Amino acid sequence: MTVEILGFGEPIWRLTFFATLFLSLAALELLHPRLERPELMRALKARRWFTNLSILVLSSLMLRMIFPAAATGVALYADAHGYGLLPMLGLPPFVSGILAFVILDFAIWLEHVIFHKVPLFWRIHRVHHADTGLDLTTALRFHPLEILLSVLWKSVVILAIGAPPVSVLIFEIVLNGAAMFNHANLKLPARIDGMLRHLIVTPDMHSIHHSAEPDETDTNYGFNLSIWDRLFSTYRERSRRAPEAMQIGLSQYPNPSPARLFWSLVLPFRRE
């Protein structure tokens, strides 16, 4: 059982959008890079890309084995049994879909904050922040344990609100694409960046979150909509350092360790 749109199932839609956006952003990073950092030089970049993409593959395989239908499967189950708040309200499907999208986006923002604030979860999430470069592959660098916990959290939210399956599929596609976009080493004109920030998270905005300065890491948690950081006073417009002087990653883990696959996978289990 899977969600279908225009006759195509979830795996086709997700893979098509992922591949299209990944290749497009990779090309734009080459043509209009935001920064040319030493840590993004060709040799190290190749190692980073191998590690980050390998983590994505391992996480995807684990997820397919444990949760074959993932979040959309949970939404289908909730829909079939009439679970959740939204079906009880009797709202039009379009309105329910929009509300579900917004609620899920807030849930992911809240999850991100919790992964920073709770020490046990931070041990897992720091795999993402240990990356000493920042490009679209950083958006894919989440430890398999974090992916598993994220799916469990989304499943609880989906069951609680009774999110429509189509809206969950759209949310998953948009979230994945937005994360790659705002992690991309991509230069946007200042005027466009300023306009987009009122609605979505931009690369300049999210790069501050990857600063090695702890007070800057604790800002700009959003992956998609930017409203949550503004509402909860975690928004930061600019880093205290110029973009080219900002240290990316975690200061206790310098190059080249974070670019190694095995090192990254065992990082949550290392002693401080």
Rank of each mutant, 00 (worst) to 15 (best):
S233K: 13
D218W: 08
L31W: 04
K187I: 01
T132A: 04
P144D: 09
G9F: 05
I147Y: 13
E10L: 01
S167G: 05
T132S: 10
I227H: 06
V127N: 06
L231S: 06
G222T: 07
I200G: 03
I5V: 13
S251T: 14
V156F: 14
E10D: 13
N176F: 05
I248W: 04
G82N: 02
Q247L: 12
L58T: 11
T72L: 06
M180I: 07
P164K: 14
R42W: 12
L35P: 13
I170D: 09
L261M: 05
P92I: 10
M195W: 15
L99V: 06
P256V: 08
H112K: 14
V201Q: 06
L28Q: 05
G194D: 03
G82M: 00
Y221D: 06
L28D: 07
V74Y: 02
Y77H: 15
L267N: 05
E237R: 03
R14Y: 02
F262C: 03
E4G: 00
V3T: 04
N185T: 05
Y235V: 06
L250N: 01
H143D: 02
D218F: 02
A160P: 00
I158G: 11
L120D: 08
R240I: 13
K154F: 11
I12Q: 02
L58Q: 03
N224C: 02
L40D: 13
L40W: 03
P165C: 10
E213S: 10
L15G: 09
I5F: 01
P119R: 13
G82W: 00
R48G: 05
T234C: 07
F171D: 05
L25D: 12
Q247Y: 03
E36F: 08
I248E: 00
N182L: 09
R236W: 10
S60D: 04
V201G: 01
F101L: 06
E213H: 05
A139H: 08
D79G: 00
H128T: 01
P119N: 13
A100W: 01
F50Q: 14
L186F: 14
